[in-house]
């Protein structure tokens, strides 16, 4: 079978969806934040329906994020939402909580399910466990390295998804930490909302060059990585082991930025597929991202070449 990896991007709006599809995305990741975690923008049900119809016209797949940690109060709406997603014709549901898996069994038979618990999706055997319960894809934790990714791909029959660009979440609390802090200081009105548009970040004294974005939403407080993963230069290493899906995370980035990132990853993937042997990375691809990159955020290899201890 010919190897056709997927280029997956997050869309914050219908406009961004259109532009990312035109830039070369094969699939887009969207959802309602009541059920999906850390979405780059909110999609209402009407918008999801429209997204599916726009995407189908272009042969692009729509994945619905339903990867929140679910509480009792969310359960009732969850079942209705899953039934809606099935009806709307999304191409897959992304889940972490077993309640979502059970709801999908009940209301979306046959729906492809992507297992994604973010930092805790860390080994092939657990991926196989979820596969036996219906998962079709394994979204790898961003804290895994190249060796572990290769090993997982060789041991798993599941589709493997790897994030190759953008920021990652490094801490998620149910608490309202920014507002609690401002309350503590007696200035609760200073930031009426601390959402992801506000440009809040935290810094630690020993690491003055690292700015960790922090925001609050209906799901609590989120701290994000201080650098953006960029695997463009070494994408061929992941292509060589036949990773099935490359994700570009567009949270807290402009549409222009995400559009350009999708465009050059598309070029790289197509160039590789056309001639794997003769493939050469083009510095100008990366330069075009660098031009749009926030100078205070480094482009990094994330954990791809790191050894961690414990």
């Amino acid at each position: 079978m010919t190897y056709r990896p997927e280029l997956l991007a997050t869309a914050s709006s219908l406009e961004e969806l259109n532009r990312l599809m035109d830039a070369g995305a094969d699939a887009c990741y969207i959802g309602e934040s009541r059920y999906g975690t850390r979405l780059s923008g909110e999609f209402t049900r009407e918008m999801i329906k429209e997204a599916v119809s726009l995407a189908q016209a272009k042969g692009v797949r729509i994945y619905a994020a339903v990867n929140n940690i679910i509480d009792n109060d969310t359960l009732e709406g969850l079942h209705d939402y899953i039934a809606f997603l099935h009806e709307a014709g999304v191409d897959a549901i992304v889940f972490g909580d077993p309640a979502v898996l059970m709801a999908a069994r009940a209301h979306a038979p046959g729906m492809p399910l992507h297992w994604n618990t973010e930092m805790t999706s860390t080994n092939f055997a657990t991926a196989e466990y979820w596969a036996r319960r219906g998962a079709t894809r394994y979204v790898l934790a961003r804290e895994l390295n190249m060796e572990q990714i290769e090993d997982t791909k060789s041991k798993s029959k599941l589709e493997i998804q790897v994030q190759v660009h953008g920021m990652t979440n490094i801490y998620h609390s149910k608490r309202s930490l920014v507002n609690n802090y401002l309350d503590h200081k007696g200035e609760p009105d200073r930031i009426p909302n601390a959402d992801l548009e506000r440009g809040l970040y935290m810094m630690e004294a020993d690491r003055p060059d690292e700015r960790y974005p922090i925001f609050e939403d209906v799901n609590g407080t989120h701290v994000m990585s201080s650098s953006d993963i960029c695997m463009l230069e070494n994408l061929h290493e992941l292509l060589a082991v036949s990773v099935d899906s490359f994700k570009i995370e567009g949270i807290m980035k402009s549409i222009e930025y995400n559009e350009q990132v999708v465009r050059v990853y598309r070029l790289a993937i197509d160039a590789y597929l056309a001639d794997p042997e003769g493939y050469r990375f083009q510095e100008e691809w990366l330069d075009s991202i660098r031009e749009l990159q926030d100078p205070k955020r480094e482009l990094s290899y994330g954990f791809f070449y790191k050894e961690q201890v414990y």
Binding site: T120, E143, I170, Y171, H172, S173, R175, L177, G220
Partner: peptide
């Protein structure tokens, strides 16, 4: 203070 397991600080 995070959801347990959902922290890679």
């Amino acid at each position: 203070s995070s959801y347990s397991g959902r922290c890679v600080l």
